[in-house]
Computed example of a mutant assay.
Amino acid sequence: MTTTELLQQSTRRLKACGISSASLDSQLLLAKVLKTSREKLLADAKESLSRAEEKSFRALLRRRLEGESVSYLCARAYFYGQEFYLEPGVLSPRPETELLVEQALVWLDQQERQNLIVTDIGTGSGCIAIALALARPQLLIYATDKSGIAISVAEKNIIQYNLGGRIKLLRGQLCSPLLEKINLLVANLPYLPAADYLKVEAEVTRESAQALYGGEDGLDLIKELIRTCPAKLAPGGAIMLEFDPRQRQNLEKYAKQRKFKPKFHQDLSGKDRVVVLTQN
């Protein structure tokens, strides 16, 4: 069977199971089996597979049909134009989180002083910290996470991009590992409310609950960060957070109670997705 025939067949099966990214998933899985890039796979689409290669691909396809994420099956995820190593137990980066990176870069470019220090709270795979470090070579970044798995995965990605001298990994809860004042705290913390967590797809619940579940209203860790971080912020510093658009009212109210001024930014669909908090 040729790669084209196998891709067509597997895409039909994935579509039949309601998987919207069926074509892309098929290509990524086959590229993994053939140890090639997706681009080269498509360029050589008429090549035939060996029986061993076809067997390996069908085993991966079966697992995908059973609800496993392509990111975990391929041990790879893509974010802000870069490729990242990934393992189960660490959240696969989402496209909407790229807005957080974009707004962080805007904020940094508006600052007059140089040698700014940024912290990525709950770094997971390290994708946000790495995207910022690649975009702004002068930054020093601390990346914190309480998960040992996350720290291990982030370390692999930092080494992959040769950023060990500029991104320092710290294990601990939120801001607790930080020993100096920070100019910008960036965080994509778990914000899935209890009601939503019970209804999400099986593929999503296979990811770390620790990286998804945000308590009854989804704001447990976000509120904890807002409450505990002021002592870690340098004068003129800011906190930047991703959140569920439905949480804006509660988040805005809590931020103002803690003497922060919130500024909201919208995603491509026009929904509130990122908030920048500065101290009054």
Results as ranks from 00 to 15, higher is better:
residue 1 M to D: 07
residue 1 M to I: 10
residue 8 Q to N: 14
residue 8 Q to I: 11
residue 9 Q to F: 15
residue 14 L to W: 01
residue 19 I to E: 08
residue 25 D to Y: 03
residue 26 S to H: 02
residue 31 A to E: 05
residue 32 K to M: 03
residue 34 L to A: 00
residue 42 L to Q: 09
residue 43 A to P: 01
residue 43 A to E: 14
residue 43 A to D: 07
residue 48 S to L: 12
residue 51 R to E: 13
residue 54 E to H: 10
residue 55 K to A: 15
residue 58 R to G: 00
residue 63 R to A: 12
residue 65 L to D: 05
residue 68 E to V: 03
residue 68 E to T: 04
residue 73 L to G: 04
residue 75 A to N: 15
residue 77 A to E: 01
residue 78 Y to G: 09
residue 78 Y to H: 12
residue 81 G to P: 07
residue 85 Y to F: 13
residue 85 Y to V: 10
residue 87 E to W: 00
residue 88 P to F: 04
residue 92 S to P: 06
residue 93 P to D: 08
residue 99 L to K: 02
residue 99 L to T: 03
residue 104 A to T: 13
residue 105 L to N: 11
residue 108 L to Y: 10
residue 110 Q to D: 06
residue 111 Q to P: 00
residue 111 Q to A: 02
residue 119 T to K: 01
residue 119 T to D: 01
residue 119 T to M: 04
residue 121 I to H: 04
residue 122 G to M: 02
residue 124 G to V: 05
residue 130 I to C: 10
residue 132 L to W: 09
residue 132 L to I: 07
residue 133 A to M: 08
residue 136 R to F: 11
residue 136 R to Q: 15
residue 136 R to Y: 13
residue 137 P to A: 12
residue 138 Q to N: 15
residue 140 L to R: 14
residue 142 Y to S: 14
residue 146 K to D: 12
residue 154 A to I: 03
residue 154 A to R: 05
residue 159 I to D: 12
residue 160 Q to G: 05
residue 162 N to H: 14
residue 162 N to R: 13
residue 163 L to P: 07
residue 163 L to I: 09
residue 172 G to P: 04
residue 173 Q to M: 09
residue 173 Q to D: 14
residue 180 E to T: 13
residue 183 N to K: 04
residue 189 L to Y: 07
residue 189 L to Q: 09
residue 191 Y to T: 05
residue 192 L to C: 15
residue 193 P to S: 03
residue 194 A to Y: 02
residue 199 K to E: 15
residue 200 V to D: 07
residue 202 A to Q: 14
residue 205 T to G: 00
residue 209 A to W: 02
residue 216 E to K: 13
residue 217 D to A: 08
residue 221 L to N: 06
residue 223 K to M: 12
residue 230 P to C: 06
residue 232 K to A: 12
residue 234 A to T: 09
residue 235 P to Y: 10
residue 236 G to P: 06
residue 239 I to W: 00
residue 241 L to Y: 02
residue 242 E to A: 06
residue 243 F to A: 06
residue 250 N to W: 09
residue 253 K to G: 08
residue 253 K to S: 13
residue 255 A to N: 06
residue 256 K to V: 08
residue 256 K to A: 03
residue 256 K to S: 01
residue 256 K to M: 10
residue 258 R to D: 01
residue 259 K to P: 00
residue 260 F to E: 02
residue 261 K to E: 14
residue 263 K to A: 13
residue 267 D to H: 12
residue 270 G to T: 09
residue 274 V to R: 07
residue 276 V to I: 15
residue 277 L to W: 04
residue 279 Q to L: 14
residue 280 N to S: 15
